[in-house]
């Protein structure tokens, strides 16, 4: 059975490249361009993992993370929050919102691959 990864970022080139990277690893990929769309897709499609950007105009990553982690149906989805490098407050808030992993942008694509395998196949 194919593992499904939902990628959410309002920067369309980040979304495009990350989606490509994840697809390369053999996972099914869903994409969302904003927090609301990510929340809707996560609830409807129940992906195995969510790669989630923080700074989005409609609904930020923390809020999406909190909502998913507080509902029994979606609590099992692994969430990797994509933070901005050097923003210590982001890390704190990220852990508080219930994320399983934090990844600082710009990240090494290999690092992303490693994390995906660790969480989905390990």
């Amino acid at each position: 059975m194919d593992r499904t990864v939902l990628v959410c970022d309002d920067e369309r080139y980040i979304l495009e490249t990350v989606a490509y990277l994840v697809r390369q690893e053999g996972y099914r990929v869903l994409t969302a361009e904003g927090g609301r769309e990510a929340l809707r897709l996560a609830q409807a499609e129940r992906p195995d993992l969510l790669l989630l950007d923080i700074a989005m105009p409609d609904l930020d990553g923390y809020a999406v993370c909190r909502q998913l982690k507080s509902a029994a149906a979606t609590r099992g989805i692994y969430i990797i929050l994509l933070t901005c490098l050097g923003q210590e407050s982001d890390l704190e808030e990220g852990w508080r919102s219930g994320a399983d992993e934090l990844l600082s942008k710009p990240f090494d694509p290999r690092q992303l691959r490693r994390k995906l395998h660790q969480l989905l196949d390990g």
Binding site: E11, Y13, I14, E16, T17, V18, Y20, L21, Q24, A55, C84, L85, G86, Q87, K105, P106, F107, D108, P109, R110
Partner: peptide, 17 residues
């Protein structure tokens, strides 16, 4: 930092691919 890191992330990802 956000404005600088967003394009950098895209560039880094594309280059990595």
């Amino acid at each position: 930092s956000h404005e600088l890191q967003s394009p950098l992330t895209s560039i880094k990802n594309a280059a990595g691919i």
